[in-house]
Design a binder for these strands. Structure first.
Lengths: 319, 319
DNA sequence: GTAATTCGTGTTACCGGTAACAGCTTTTAA
DNA sequence: TTAAAAGCTGTTACCGGTAACACGAATTAC
């Protein structure tokens, strides 16, 4: 491996000058900078992360806490991770996963936390390094998330535009901010159009939504669209309707939320509010790195705009 | 942070002795060892990974190459990652993801590679650090995988035991070792029982399997069990059969392969060959760490035994 | 014209570990 | 009994970077 010293010799300067070219380029004459750059290129110089970490009193490690049970959880984590990893890589950071399976050991420069519940608040506050959450919270903690309210607004508006004359919301039965926001988006759109609202809530399992349809089939009215708080629930609704050979999307519309995996394997494919998961990972990492750089200073929140991915579970008239 | 020197002072020894207690304990008197341990405990000493990495000329970083397209791929990667991360954590290693999204930059101590195709062989060989693959190969590269052959044998034997009198294999249309092994397991079991074999192959998309059922429904015989090379295909078969209100599991059995996520959301839940993904992650990491420790020496292969997870898509008579 | 700044670069010391070697004791061998 | 070997522990130098300071040259101030 070529080191700073190698580059320094090649460029006939001290290694301190090379270090400055990297970290404080404005302090070095252009002429020298050029020859240092040339030397770095010729020798294919790559900084030694460990040495940098040591002298800066850093670890160059970010820990990702996954507080949810992974087995029953959405498969979108991989995209999140890819986004996080991409952004961290740019600044030579690497990653450690902390789940129920492994003990948290060793230091790090910061944390990204997903799946936080309010009960986790206390110990989170005790962490001694900067923290950024993936997922809304109302506790003044920095976070990145999809704009959940906007997401269900988009879904609801689309359902209205497509002429479904009854639009119901299928929510997740948890007292967490993301769910409140999704419900709020639905309610706001409906109220803007002066339409009557109806909300059902289930735990986030497809079979519960399916069973709801099965047991209420007789009372369901055609031309209803179900705006759901997750693809799982939407998937269950669709399966329930399919049992009775309901005509989807003509008589019933379904819109999910997430847009990872499940919407693809459903038949017909689900129209869904697609979360920009990869990009959210990037933003989480970006925010955390900035926060580390600024000595833990709060970074506020970042809400990314989802996109409505049109599938076969809703009518698609170009009105 | 407490350092070696702090511990050394507390225990009235040199820091070298403390270092030896950690790395070569047999070279230190028991008496001193005890007081060093005590000092470490009292001061809550944690070794500085960067310093260790620097002096050992290591990075303490492992790169995970994910060569498949993640969007269309199984959601089981998260479990794999959890397993890998757990094992790496024990020896203070951390992780960097390399996907199509991010450029590979910076050094590492070793690689774990998933989703390798034979076309990747050439550049893989050129990597300058130890490599372990996740997934079978016939190229003399070290790997960990499920025992694929055993998996489909278990599935086939189970189908036979449950009295299905026709057992067909639904394979994935790729020329990769894992697929050959799965087909081989089916063929071996069938031949042992002197039963006629039948193999269909599709790309690994549920709708293709579904469409196969739809277009061949008229010719299908009842009391057939489909042993599938993936849960995706099994899921498609099940959906196809459901369209015709076929009685599952009475008239048709379905057995998938993977046991992550999809088998759970299917209705009825799929009987499937469950891969020990988390454990495979642990083993991959373990093998790689050993290989690094032994200076790149080949570690052979490791095939873990899957379990047959019984769902509602097969008969379940206790024979 | 000389003192005070500013600018640009090099020197030194240090981050927290570990290998190699030095040096003192104790044990073993003859 | 004494030299050689073995067993422990400490000292030194180094891994590859960076901050702080030192120092000569060029610029500015008056």
């Amino acid at each position: 491996m070529t080191t700073l010293t190698d580059v320094a010799k090649r460029a006939n300067v001290s290694k301190m000058t090379v270090s400055r070219v990297i970290n404080h380029p404005e302090q070095v004459r252009d002429e020298l900078k050029q020859s240092v750059f040339a030397a770095m290129r010729e020798l294919n110089y790559r900084p030694n992360v460990a040495a940098k970490a040591l002298v800066n009193n850093r670890t160059q490690i970010i820990k990702l806490f996954i507080l949810e049970d992974m087995d029953t959880t959405e498969p979108y984590y991989m995209n999140l991770l890819a986004g996080i990893s991409k952004e961290l890589g740019k600044e030579q950071y690497s990653l450690q996963l902390v789940t129920e399976h492994n003990f948290d050991i060793g230091g790090c420069d910061g944390y990204i936390v997903t799946g936080m519940r309010h009960t986790d608040f206390e110990w989170l506050q005790r962490l001694e390094r900067p923290v950024v959450l993936f997922g809304e919270n109302r506790l003044e903690l920095d976070y990145c998330d999809t704009n959940n309210t906007l997401g269900t607004q988009m879904a609801t508006e689309y359902a209205i535009k497509q002429g479904y004359d009854q639009i119901e919301f299928i929510g997740i039965n948890v007292k967490e901010p993301f769910e409140y926001s999704r419900e709020a988006g639905y309610l706001m759109s409906m109220q803007n159009h002066q339409l009557p609202t109806m909300i059902h809530r289930f735990s986030n399992h497809s079979h519960l939504a399916m069973e709801y349809i099965e047991s209420h089939w007789a009372t369901l009215k055609t031309n209803t669209c179900y705006v759901c708080a997750s693809d799982r629930l939407a998937f269950g609704i669709e399966k329930g309707l399919t049992i009775f050979n309901a005509r989807i999307p003509q008589d019933f519309g379904i819109i999910g939320f997430d847009g990872v995996f499940l919407n693809q394997v459903a038949t017909p494919k689900l129209t869904t509010v697609q979360q920009p998961i990869f990009e959210l990972g990037v933003q989480c990492a970006r925010m955390l790195l900035t926060k580390i750089d600024k000595d833990g200073q709060s970074q506020g929140i970042e809400q990314l705009t989802p996109t409505l991915s049109i599938g076969g579970s809703t009518r698609n008239d170009q009105l």
